[in-house]
Design a protein around this nucleic acid. Structure first.
Lengths: 334, 334
DNA sequence: TTGTAAGCGTTATCAC
DNA sequence: GTGATAACGCTTACAA
């Protein structure tokens, strides 16, 4: 079942069939209809390989993410896939984990599949500590568009769409301070671009309020609610006091809440807790956790829209920023 | 950069280069090494389209799921993708939603991409109420392997890997009854194959204990913790009493727990709660929710292993069943 | 062991 | 408006 079968049965040349297939206007309505009819009768489907061979594109973009089972990234994948498909593009998904070697290897693999663009979802793809480790991305961007969702890298062919994490955290800290909190513990999971921005927002808010940045209030912790809880228990046992906890991820906030329950702290009076990403997790607990909505749907939509503009030869800024929303629930009274 | 460039530079024919590429043993070591060397020098990557055109396969399988942001399916996708890749296959992801028309349309779309197999993840793909609506799957299975993860359809070319949901729910109900519970409320989300099995397990356990199946204790509810909570509140207000809640999904169990908090019921004494899937949600709450681990990782691994066997021409059972585990946490004392 | 050449199903460039 | 025909880059008989 190929273009020859259709052309034979319709009594036209393959060129004409191809024209019909591609919406070329230089076909008479009569011919077009006959061809379409035959295609329908024969249940003809064009062969994507043959098409790809000629055009060297398969209307497919590669999506990389470190872990599709993370709620935030799972949503990102969902929206990205939906938007790409709405624009006629398939997506090949690749979950890389967080090892640089694997990220590199999967990146190469997707390139070898001749994807039309790459989307790197999540802030885990830009190395902060060793800039040269990002070179493989920058080099690839010379050949095809690379879209960063919630990550930033300044190079030709790389387009970032990020949430203003700095501002989000600045606002949260600002409002906590305004409401009288004085010892805000800060828990974060990673040294990513996004992670550093969040932390800086927290620090800048303290400074703006004339408060010192106290290192003993800033702690890194695995993205695991059990570990977050244990960390807080041991910090409290060591004599550290705090009246609020800001976290870079909802899972840490859940851990903080478990700590509060464990130590019978009243919430939000004795301890305010703020999560990040406003995921399902923040709705599961009792009380529900106030959290920052990072607009992953908007982020994803803008990413795909930008990509389509790039494909169309349009001008796209190297960085698009959207604002986050603070969603007040029951662990704060701001 | 193609096979001709390599052949020219290595001083051999393209056939020989192709042989080296495909590990054909009929090449002298000397030639093979020279060719490999040249490939490396030139940074040659074979063109997948040209290859696919000849072989009519692209070592790619289509994965469909109704919603990749559901924690259970997100994990399934993660594991499936990982296993497929380990076996040299790419995956094209398609999130279909739950409308039949869309499922059908996306299915067609993936077929037109000439995927080598289809994996349908989750029980939402087999229509229970109208069997003929599954025909499009059965017909497709004549042309390529169709793998069902946690769904069952008996037809040639369709291979199911399922968790024994009936047994899991039977055991849970059995143990609740043994521990003295007498009014077990049952909440479920959907009429899927898996959903019906779970419900039947619950009913059979009641029967085995000589208890009546009371329809007023069985309720369908949207997969939403807020709705589950509201439903229980209104049921309780209407005078219904119950000392345990079994749910077909963790999110409903979270809703049940919120209901319990709301009504100040002690857990598990006054009310036992059991979730399903043992997802992150069941660990977020306080108390943590006892839940059924449905082994999605094993399910995914077996699915891909079976698929590889099918590709290799081996015999694979139409249905593989694995047992679930009950994970006791703090909402039961069984 | 190696080379030649046909074929895979499209799209694109010519003529007409 | 339509038809030949040459790419596109690979695999694989078949020949040598």
């Amino acid at each position: 079942m190929n273009i020859y079968d259709v052309s034979a049965k319709a009594g036209v040349s393959i060129a004409t069939v191809s024209r019909v297939l591609n919406g070329n206007p230089n076909v008479s309505d009569k011919t077009r209809n006959r061809v379409l009819e035959v295609m329908d009768e024969l249940g003809y489907t064009p062969n994507v390989f043959a098409r790809g061979l000629g055009l060297n594109t398969m209307k497919t973009v590669g999506i990389m993410c470190s872990d599709s089972s993370d709620p935030y990234l799972a949503h990102a994948i969902y929206y990205l896939e939906r938007e790409l498909r709405a624009n006629g593009y398939d997506s090949i998904l690749c979950c890389t984990g967080s090892e640089l070697v694997n990220k590199r290897q999967y990146f190469e693999l997707l390139l070898s599949k001749r994807v039309d663009a790459m989307i790197l979802a999540g802030s885990k793809f830009v190395e902060i500590d060793s800039a040269e480790d990002n070179n493989y991305i920058i080099e690839a961007a010379a050949d095809l568009p690379v879209m960063l969702v919630n990550g930033y890298l300044d190079a030709p062919g790389i387009y970032s769409t990020v949430c203003d994490d700095h501002d989000a955290m600045y606002q949260v800290a600002h409002r906590l301070l305004q409401s009288g909190r004085r010892q805000i513990l800060y828990l974060y999971t990673s040294h990513s671009y996004s992670g550093m921005n969040k932390l800086q927002g927290y620090k800048d808010a303290l400074t703006a309020h004339g408060m010192p940045v106290r290192q003993e209030l800033i702690h890194r912790c695995a993205k695991d609610l059990g570990e977050a809880k244990e960390l807080l228990l041991s910090l409290a046992d060591s004599g550290l006091t705090f009246d609020a906890v800001m976290t870079s991820d909802d899972s840490l906030a859940v851990g903080a809440l478990k700590f509060a329950h464990c130590r019978k702290k009243s919430i939000p009076e004795e301890l305010s807790i703020v999560g990040y990403n406003n995921s399902m997790l923040s709705y599961c607990t009792d009380p529900e956790i106030s959290s920052v909505d990072t607009k992953i749907e908007s982020l994803s939509i803008i990413t795909v829209q930008s990509l389509m503009k790039v494909f169309g030869g349009g001008q796209v800024p190297g960085k698009s920023v959207i604002k986050a929303d603070f969603v007040q629930k029951q662990t704060t009274d701001l």
